[in-house]
Design a protein around this nucleic acid. Sequence first.
DNA 1: ACAGCTATTGGTCGCCTGGCCAATTACCTG
DNA 2: CAGGTAATTGGCCAGGCGACCAATAGCTGT
Lengths: 229, 229
Amino acid sequence: MRKAPAERRNEIVTTAARIGLTEGLECVTLRRVADELGVQSGLVGHYFPAADKLVAEAFTSATMAELDGLLPDPDPDPDSDPAPHPDPAPHPDPGPEGPAGSAATPGVGLRTLRRFFALSSSADFDDISKLWLNARHLSRYRPVLRDHVVEQELLWCRRIERIVAAGVEAGDFRCDDPWATAVRVLVAIDGTSAYINTSAEHRAGPIAHMVRTLAESELGLAPGALEPR
Amino acid sequence: MRKAPAERRNEIVTTAARIGLTEGLECVTLRRVADELGVQSGLVGHYFPAADKLVAEAFTSATMAELDGLLPDPDPDPDSDPAPHPDPAPHPDPGPEGPAGSAATPGVGLRTLRRFFALSSSADFDDISKLWLNARHLSRYRPVLRDHVVEQELLWCRRIERIVAAGVEAGDFRCDDPWATAVRVLVAIDGTSAYINTSAEHRAGPIAHMVRTLAESELGLAPGALEPR
DNA sequence: ACAGCTATTGGTCGCCTGGCCAATTACCTG
DNA sequence: CAGGTAATTGGCCAGGCGACCAATAGCTGT
C-alpha cells in the first residue's frame, strides 16, 4: 500500500494523463484519480495541494509521451539517454540519399515526416486531437495549464523545426525559414483536427491531403513526396 | 416584471449569448443568466427545463449574429427579409468588373472576402475564436450543443461557398470546387485561431498572411489580391 | 369586477467539486 | 525491538451546479 513518494506521485500523474487523454481533462479530479488508483482522495490532494497543477501535469505527461512516439527527435540532446528512441523507419534500405549530411542521416527527415502525417491523419490520433482542443480551451480558465500548453506547443513546433532543418542540411528539403514552416504545418494540423468533436466526417474529403500538400509546398517537394510509402 | 413568454425567452437567450461570448459557455448557467436579468433562477429553468438547450441556443444566437456581420450573404433567400443586410462595401466605385454576372454584382465577392479576412485577423475576432474553440470542445460532452455547432459549421461553410460560387460566376474567381475551397479556408482560419488562449502571440508572424495566401491560391487570384484596400 | 391562466417567486434537494485536517498506520532507523 | 517520521486514511466543510415544486402575483378575457 504505502509507496515511495516519487513512485506514488508518478503513478498519480500517469493515471491522470490516461484519464485526461481518454475522457477529457475535466474528468481529471482528485476523487476520480484516487478511485482509479484505489486510494483515498485526500492522498491525491496531499501530492497536489492545488488540483490545477495535477491537470496541467497530466496534460504534459500525455503530450510528451505522444510527441516522442509521433515525431522522434532526429538529433536528441546528448545528455539525455540516447537509447529509447525508436527508429522512425526500420526499413533496411537507406532511401534516396542526398549529399552526405554532417549530422543527420539523409532521408531520415523525409521518412519521419511521412510517418508523422500518416499517423496524424489516422483514427489513432483522434484522442490527441481531442486532448489539444480540450487543453487549449481549458487554458482560458486555468493559468497553470496554460503555461504547460504553451510549453508543449513550443516543444512540438521546435521538434518539427529541427526535423525540417536537419532535412534541409541533408539536402532533402528546401526551406528558408524552418520555424515559420513548422508553425504553418502545425496550423494546418490543428485546423483539420478542430472538428474532431463535431463535423469531422463532413469535411474528411476536402481536407484529407491538405496538411501533406502544404508541407510539400513549404519544403520544396514534389506533390506526393510525403505520401506514405 | 411579468413579460410575454416570447419576449422573455428571447431576452434570456440574448443574455446567455453575451455571457457565452465574453466569458465562455461554461459560465452560461441558470443562476448566472438569472442574475444578469435580475430574476430568479427558477424562471430561467422554467423556459429551459434542460440547461444544455440554453447553452446550445446561446451559442447559435452568438454565432448567427457574428456571421451576418462578418460575411453578408451575397444572394439571401427571398423569403427572409432582404432589408437588414448591411452593404459589405459601401464604397461608390463598383470595382473591377468582370462580365456582367446573372445574379451577383461583380466585385462584391472580392470585397466581401477582403473585409472578412481583415476582420477575422483583427483583435475584434478574438472572442469569436474563443467561442468556437469553447463550443467545439464542449460538444464532446453535450450532444445538444454538438448538433448546434455542426449546424453552424455547415452554415458558415455554405456562406463562404456561396460567396465563392457567386464570385466565380461573376468572373472574379477561378475555382473548380467552391465547397472544398470553403472547407479549406475555414480550416486555415480555425487553425490560426486555435492558439487564441495560449501562444497566439508567439505565432503571429508566420501565420499572419496564411489564410489570405491560401484563399488567393484557391481562388486563382494574384498574391495580395485579398489584402485590405 | 371577477375568475382563470400562467409567469414568476423562493426555496429545497442531491450531487460533485477542491480544500482542509486530525487520526491512524506503515515503514525505516537507531 | 522501540521510536519517530511521513504516507495514508476518513471525514468534514463551503460553494456551485441542475432539477424540481408549491405558492404567489399579475395579466386577460368574459
